[in-house]
Design a protein around this nucleic acid. Structure first.
Length: 956
RNA sequence: ACCUCUGUAGCCCAACUGGAAGAGGCGCAUGACUUAGAAUCAUGAUGUUGUGGGUUCGAAUCCCACCAGAGGUACCA
């Protein structure tokens, strides 16, 4: 029979499901192996071809490990809470639970189509109460603990309270924002509210003021993603940074352990580097500057205490707590004006716009603790409240940004480091000899740093300190579609945790998912839910997206447990994720949060290891081509005005303020993805059908204008191309460029789709989707099939294979196994192609070869392999079989052909016996005719023999 | 702006630890089969390894600078 995937694939998917082929037991003697995918957020547009890339890779690896005799846990679930479902609810009135369930159904059918070996009985959905019960429980555990720096782990708040009651806090070393010292007597005399406030400074889940993006016109808090250039993406309204009391997680407490833990995991160096940079450990000093004519002291963190004598001004973050007190009457207007400006600036704007130097003078002065110099205190947006202490001592002579600032505002610059001995050193380089620096003069920077800190400690004006860029994670969202935070407040505003027996705190139904007029979370509207009979009120913020995804991998181990998040037995067996595959876009965020949660659970003795993911691989993103149209920001005669991208280019293109770029559905585009992609008249009409709001828009093409159904050509031209701009980028709903895997599976079959995705390129590399190449893989599968079948005839014969046939097979086993181990699936695919090409040349149809080949290819093409496996008369699944072993005897060669190079250039080849020694090879090489010829009149200086590679003769 | 990664034939990519620039596929060209096309089979052409420097007997690979693209930058997921 012909290879026709559609007729066999569905059959085997049903068979696997009915036979429970992929059901995983926690109860077995087999060694375990845990292969995890980053579970998807079920978006409204369904899976696109980028999603399955990692899933296919992990599925191949799981099937491989199963064949190798492991008990493999390979689960799947859904990260089901999230903003898009809520936005959809706000605009379309569909309950997020309903749309999410619809999306999950669609995802499931798409996933099923690809033939994954997931154990669906372990499915996890983060939006299910029986799951988020435990998310809430972990949150309360975090709330109930603080980080003790003496024991270097989380300890219970109850124990801390006992210490306060007996000894106060003087001998407590903890990760805390609490810097007042109190005695037991003082503590015991405090009101419950005051005690609660102090404990907030210790808890791992705590409340503090942090800012949100607030859009007055839309009456809502916006995600960073919804803000572009300081205005809302929707409608273009102003967005300001508004301070709100919110929950946070004290991730910083674990900074050092998060950093050290990286040494013990098998992740790529680039990924570890990204995590290390995100944690951003830096050594330096904290220093205290008194404010002139005030009792205030400003704390700064600096990595360059050596440059203290060059500190000519001080810069505070505009959010600094002392700003009010420091601003003089004269300067108030200027400061207020500046604050209004800063309010419109996102953190990203503030970091990236370094060329723009802005700031304002408070009118106050600080005293340099080392020499008593009076230096002005400014506020500047380049100082971020969240980093260090939100205040810096500025040294314009040795810091690029400070230098620009000082130059612009005419502030003093005192050179303190002489770099004349270091050619090419930049301002920021930590090299040179100290000058103008009193006792530091003449020292090298490195020594001066130590000397300066020692002196400051002696004088009591500073101390050695390690600072981290890592910030505590904001844990509050003013949203509906997330886990409710199980906290209630009494009449005094003191928070209380809910009783564990009352969990889960189920998210109540709402009809209207908009926030309240004053920006409170939607749940605030549900007064019968928020107001409890005893006068207490509920927290109305919900948890962020990362809450549910920070521990889901533990739930798969024991998904139906109602007593614990997972049983100790299940946790002890599965232990940790052995291989985690997921997108590089999660390289810091999700992985950092999961590791933090896991370390906390480890401290509690609830998980057996302190790092959750042993080996981690980021698959590269499959990109799509995004097609943009240029829209003039200002309407022409009251209607929208689109401009051909080639015309827009001449006026500055995307960098110009004149244009907005809007993504177009790529289905309308001619010459999609090329430099000359365009819309013709009929595609413009389709565009208008799609976006009726642009029905009367002007479309300015290269050679004419299209409007209201009529094309007016200039110079009688018929060329009506409206060029669009193609850009490689994310595939997704917002760019209208998704390719649905179902279409590929319908057309080519799941096995072909799977192999093609792997064949596209290295797993870790980003690559644009291109449907064209899939024909090659399809052709390969037909050729593979043709080894077994000729039309309706089963060709396989029971003859003993030849040496050559064995060699082809075992070369392939070796290559494929090695490549699977290093996750190089693209080269596996081409190894199979080579193998099939060679077997065809040998006209091989031998059972012993082909049956082994079927097992070998089973992880890649599970359906075809299963079909053929059963044709061989086997009754159990090929996927529960045994992986073939390489027999090296078939791979041996008698001679190896070496290139003979003269001075690095290949001049001849020579066959050496494969077991020849280096010395023999050198001796033979020296006598070769070519070598003699090239060495004529010169001497042979050296002969380099690289076994199995080449021979190089150096003459001269 | 900062952090991370990538750049090899018209295109997707191989080249493992520094050792012959080429495995596989797409596309293209020619031939076979065919009335023709499709499918299939056979054959084979294409190079400043992004640019410039350095290290080395030898560099796609290591180092430095630059250019281009992608991902992340804490409320998209």
């Amino acid at each position: 029979m012909e290879y026709s995937p559609n007729s066999i694939e569905e059959k085997w998917r049903v068979w696997w499901s009915e036979n429970g082929t992929y059901k995983v037991s926690n109860d077995t003697d087999k060694p375990k192996y845990y292969v995890l995918d980053m579970f998807p957020y079920p978006s409204g547009s369904g899976l696109h071809v980028g999603h399955p890339l990692g899933y296919i890779a992990s599925d191949i690896f799981s099937r491989y490990k199963r064949l190798k005799g492991y008990n493999v846990l390979h689960p799947m679930g859904y990260d089901a809470f999230g903003l898009p479902a809520e936005q959809y609810a706000v605009t379309m009135g569909v309950h997020p639970a309903a749309s999410t369930n619809e999306n999950i159904k669609r995802y499931r059918s798409q996933l099923d189509n690809i033939g994954f070996s997931f154990d669906w009985s372990r499915e996890v959905k983060t939006s299910e109460p029986n799951y988020y019960k435990w998310t809430q429980w972990i949150f309360l555990e975090l709330y109930d603990h603080y980080f003790d720096t003496d024991s270097n782990k989380a300890e219970s708040i109850d124990a801390l309270v006992k210490r306060f009651e007996t000894n106060g806090n003087a001998d407590v070393n903890a990760a805390t924002t609490q810097d007042n010292t109190f005695t037991s007597v003082e503590w015991n005399a405090l009101t419950p509210k005051a005690k609660s406030d102090i404990l907030m400074g210790y808890r791992l889940a705590y409340r503090k003021v942090s800012t949100v993006n607030w859009c007055e016109e839309l009456g809502t808090v916006l995600a960073n993603d919804e803000v572009k250039d300081g205005v809302s993406e929707r409608g273009g309204y102003p967005v300001i940074q508004k301070p709100v009391l919110q929950w946070s997680l004290r991730t910083t407490a674990y900074a050092e352990r998060l950093l050290n833990g990286l040494d013990n995991v098998d992740w790529s160096d680039s990924l570890k580097t990204q995590q290390r940079n995100w944690i951003g450990r830096s050594e330096g000093a904290r220093m205290f500057f008194n404010v002139a004519d005030s009792d205030k002291t400003i704390e700064v963190f600096t990595t360059r205490p050596d440059t203290i004598y060059g500190a000519t001004y001080m810069a505070l973050a505009p959010e600094h707590e002392y700003l009010k007190e420091l601003t003089t009457t004269d300067q108030k207007a200027e400061i207020d004006e500046y604050l209004t400006y800063v309010n419109t600036r996102s953190e990203l704007d503030r970091m990236s716009d370094v060329k723009k130097v802005t700031g304002a003078f408070t009118g106050s002065y600080a005293i340099n603790p080392m020499n008593g110099a009076k230096i002005p205190i400014w506020i500047a947006e380049y100082v971020l409240a969240g980093y260090g202490t939100g205040a810096i001592m500025a040294v314009p002579s040795d810091d690029e940004r400070d230098n620009r600032f000082a130059t612009k505002f005419g502030l003093k610059i005192i050179p303190v480091v002489d770099k004349s001995e270091y050619e090419g050193a930049t301002l920021d380089d930590k090299v040179g000899k100290m000058i103008n620096s009193d006792f530091l003069n003449g020292m090298e920077v490195k020594d001066a740093i130590t000397a300066a800190i020692n002196k400051m400690e002696e004088m009591g004006v500073g101390a050695r300190k390690i600072n981290y860029k890592l910030r505590d994670a904001n844990y509050s969202r003013q949203r509906y579609w997330g886990e409710p935070i199980p906290i209630i407040y009494d009449a005094d505003g003191v928070e209380h945790k809910m009783d564990i027996s009352d969990l889960p705190l189920v998210l109540p139904d709402l009809d209207d998912f908009k926030p309240t007029a004053d920006g409170k979370a939607p749940l605030a509207k549900k007064t019968d839910w928020t107001n409890l009979p005893n006068g207490f009120t509920r927290e109305v913020d919900t948890m962020p997206g990362f809450a549910g995804s920070s521990w889901y991998f533990l739930r798969y181990m024991d998904p139906d447990n109602t007593e614990e998040f997972a049983s100790p037995k299940a946790l002890a067996y599965w232990k940790e994720v052995d291989l985690y595959i997921g997108g590089a876009e999660h390289a810091v965020g999700h992985l950092m949060y999961s590791r933090f949660w896991h370390k906390f659970l480890f401290d509690k003795g609830l998980v057996p290891v302190d790092e959750p993911f042993k080996k981690l691989v980021n698959q590269g993103m499959i990109q799509g081509i995004i097609e943009y149209m240029y829209l003039k920001k200002e309407k022409t005669d009251g209607v929208s005005h689109f401009v051909c991208s080639k015309i827009a280019q001449q006026e500055g293109g995307k960098d110009s303020d004149k244009f907005a770029r809007i993504p177009v559905n790529v289905d309308f585009i001619q010459e999609y993805g090329s430099v000359d992609s365009y819309l013709d008249i009929s595609s413009i009409k389709r565009f208008i059908d799609w976006r009726p709001d642009y029905a009367d828009a002007i479309f300015e093409c290269g050679k004419g204008i299209f409007q209201n159904g009529v094309f007016n050509a200039t110079n009688g031209s018929t060329d009506s191309h409206l060029f669009t701009e193609s850009e490689v980028g994310k595939m997704g709903k917002r760019y209208f460029n998704s390719v649905n895997p179902d279409d590929m599976v319908d057309r080519y079959g799941a096995d072909c789709f799977r192999m093609y995705e792997m064949f596209l390129g290295p797993l870790e590399q980003a690559k644009p989707w291109d449907t064209k190449g899939i024909e090659g893989v399809s052709k390969f599968l037909r050729k593979f099939w043709a080894l077994f079948y000729n039309e309706d005839k089963w060709l396989v014969v029971d003859e003993a294979p030849t040496k050559d046939e064995f060699k082809v097979l075992h070369t392939t086993i070796k290559k494929v196994s090695e490549d699977i181990e290093r996750l190089s699936f693209n080269t596996c695919t081409s190894a199979f192609m080579v193998c099939v090409n060679e077997l065809r040349k040998l006209d091989c149809h031998k059972k012993e070869i082909l049956e082994t080949l079927v097992v070998l290819i089973a992880p890649f093409a599970p359906h075809a392999a299963e079909e053929l496996w059963h044709k061989f008369g086997n009754e159990s699944s090929v996927h529960l079989g045994t992986y073939p072993i390489v027999n090296e005897d078939y791979l041996k060669e008698d001679t190896i052909t070496y290139p003979i190079c003269i001075n690095g250039k290949k001049r001849a080849t020579f066959d050496f016996a494969s077991d020849a020694s280096k010395e023999d090879m050198e001796a033979i090489t020296r006598e070769l005719e070519v070598v003699q010829k090239w060495a004529e009149g010169k001497s042979i200086r050296k002969v380099i023999v690289v076994p199995k590679r080449m021979v190089n003769v150096v003459v001269g």
